[in-house]
């Protein structure tokens, strides 16, 4: 609507600035992508841009087949082959519940803090938000100690709960900011009609807050997907439960200068998060916190 009324010169300036910034943002990743298709001799001796400036490009898919190959069968140790397939499945098992559970719990808690009366409401909320700042490495040891007693270490349930616990302060803080700005009249009429809190929550709050849930879901998903420390500590080192970032980290230790393998592995680990973002793109149109502007 505004675009049509702009004059040409300001249009050029706007597009110019954005294209410049867009290039800055994409060139490093583009280099990663190009490198992942190059052969080892090229990557160790020349920069990736020489593909274009010098024509030094012998395109290969072997790096991807190397990182995705389920192994040649000759080696019995799964930890030793690069096979990322199991790691991809494990990361999905870890990431999806670690996204859904905290959002659900944060949503009901945010609703309670925003629209329900109970003693200590303000104090508890303050404590909850203050916990945003706790560096999670402080929690690892006491929790692992308890997990051992409960038999939770090395289980996905343990990782889900840990990701939930560490993700809840931010999730509650952001979802509260959204839910508290929903129009009061909606709730008032529902209460007059005799609706209970669970009904109000599921029939009114959830549909109204869907964009906020969806966009926070994407952030939480990305953080969990890319997190290293929590799975490292709570899932353990068993190859059957290892997740992608950990595998890439192991690859860095093992193939430190084999840029082409590292870059292929890195790109594989980016693929699903990118697909999720592009798939959920529409929710960002009216996304997270959009409601809070009515304050």
């Amino acid at each position: 609507m505004v675009a049509q009324k702009m004059n040409l010169s300001s249009k050029i300036i706007i597009y110019g600035i954005l294209i410049f910034l867009g290039l800055f943002w994409t060139i490093p990743t583009f280099g990663l992508l190009v490198t992942s298709f190059r052969v080892p001799d090229d990557t160790s001796s020349s920069g990736w841009w020489e593909v274009f400036t010098e024509g030094k490009f012998s395109f290969t898919l072997q790096n991807y087949s190397a990182v995705l190959n389920p192994g040649d069968g000759a080696t019995s140790n799964t930890a030793a082959t690069i096979n990322l397939n199991q790691a991809i499945i494990n990361t999905i098992i870890m990431a999806i519940p670690s996204t859904v559970i905290p959002i659900f719990l944060a949503a009901i808690a945010a609703y309670a803090f925003a629209w329900m009366n109970f003693p200590g409401r303000k104090f508890l909320f303050m404590v909850l938000v203050a916990l945003l700042v706790v560096p999670l490495q402080m929690s690892l040891i006491p929790i692992l100690r308890d997990y051992r007693v409960l038999g939770l270490n090395g289980t996905f349930l343990g990782v889900w709960l840990a990701n939930t616990g560490f993700g809840l302060p931010l999730a509650t803080y952001l979802l509260y900011n959204y839910i508290v700005t929903l129009p009061r009249e909606v709730f008032e009429s529902a209460v007059v009609d005799g609706a209970s809190h669970p009904t109000i929550f599921s029939k009114l709050v959830v549909p109204l807050s869907m964009p906020a849930f969806a966009s926070f879901a994407i952030f939480q998903f990305l953080w969990v997907w890319n997190g290293v420390l929590i799975p490292l500590v709570f899932l353990g080192d068993d190859p059957s439960r290892i997740v992608l970032p950990q595998r890439i980290l192991q690859m860095i230790g093992q193939y430190a200068t084999n840029w082409q393998l590292l870059t292929a592995g890195a790109f594989v680990s980016m693929f699903i998060p990118l697909a999720v973002f592009i798939g959920f793109q529409q929710y960002f149109v009216r996304g997270l916190l959009a409601g809070s502007v009515k304050g």
Binding site: A79, R145, V228, L232
Partner: peptide
């Protein structure tokens, strides 16, 4: 045998707990 990508951290955390 399991190798850890961040051996020092993992060993430390596991011993402590």
């Amino acid at each position: 045998y399991a190798s850890s990508a961040d051996f020092n951290t993992v060993l430390n955390v596991r011993v402590q707990s």
